[in-house]
Design a protein around this nucleic acid. Structure first.
Length: 268
DNA sequence: CCCCAGGGCCATA
DNA sequence: TATGGCCATGGG
């Protein structure tokens, strides 16, 4: 869904009329956005989309100052300097991605997502590569649970995705509707009421799609592992041990989450 | 062969 | 409210 070139990243921008392939690269002082396929008809929308996607309009130095208060965490600020949350602006995509990834290893989760995207997503080709948009709810709405099963989704995952596709299709769920609820607690409640969406998924989605800055994905194995490795919690922990760490990062809990996940990554 | 993975649901007590 | 089984498959 996006491709990292030597000094640029490319992906599709959904657009109001038709998708456009955009390229983002940097010079000495700025990020430059080009439209390399499709008509560059909505520059302001594209700019806003990129800012939202890569969380660019945020000063993350306060977060680094908090990290540096703990000798066991301060390395994160140097190791991953400049790393920003990569969002999932499309709420439907974020939810489906969570369900795909529940309780299976990440590489298999990516395989499942790839199958879904390559089969049902809109594709644009450029320079030997295919670029996809995540499938629309209206498309998945017409796909049967049995069909999803053939792509190695479990019965439950297939059902959950079906349910969520239907909700979006009938406009009973949307990003705008969630935003309209006002508080994050209300949004959390609304999401958790949907089958297949638990506390972890609801928090993840608030972070990745609605850019909530103070969420904690409780129970996450990656977070627990990282906090143990960095001497923040004992091996056998509970929620309050995790809270004790995150409470030191008021306003930046989401960023702590993403930096901890990043610190688990084997590459680099 | 075993255990676990960026969970969530359900039955049981 | 808490605990344990279950899902299904790949990777270590």
């Amino acid at each position: 869904m996006h491709r990292v070139e030597r000094d640029a990243v490319r992906r599709l921008f959904p657009g109001n009329k038709s998708p456009q392939l955009i390229e983002i690269r940097e010079n000495a002082t700025h990020l430059l956005i080009d439209c390399i396929k499709g008509n560059f008809s909505e520059p302001h929308h594209i700019r806003r989309f990129v800012v939202e996607w890569l969380d660019l309009d945020r000063d993350i130095n306060p977060f680094y100052r908090l990290l540096q208060q703990d000798p066991d965490l301060s390395d994160l600020a140097h190791q991953f300097r400049g790393f920003r949350m990569v969002g999932i602006p499309d709420l439907f995509e974020a939810l489906v991605w969570c369900i795909l990834g529940q309780q299976i290893n990440l590489s298999f989760a990516y395989t499942l997502k790839r199958r879904l995207v390559e089969r049902f997503g809109t594709c644009i080709s450029f320079a030997q590569h295919n670029y996809f948009l995540f499938p629309e709810p209206s498309v998945l709405h017409h796909v049967s649970v049995e069909d999803l099963r053939t792509m190695q989704l479990t019965e439950k995952k297939a059902q959950y995705i079906k349910t969520i596709s239907d909700l979006f299709y009938h406009q009973q769920l949307s990003k705008e509707k969630l935003k309209g609820l006002g508080s994050e607690e209300k949004m959390l409640e609304e999401l958790i009421a949907i089958r297949g969406i638990g506390e972890w998924t609801a928090n993840y989605v608030l972070m990745k799609s609605l850019r909530a800055m103070n969420r904690v994905p409780y129970g996450d194995s990656g977070i627990n592992g990282a906090l143990f490795r960095l001497k923040q919690i004992p091996k056998k922990n509970n929620r309050s041990e995790v809270d004790k760490v995150f409470d030191q990062f008021e306003g930046w809990k989401t960023y702590l989450t993403f930096y901890l996940w990043r610190s688990n990554s084997k590459v680099l």
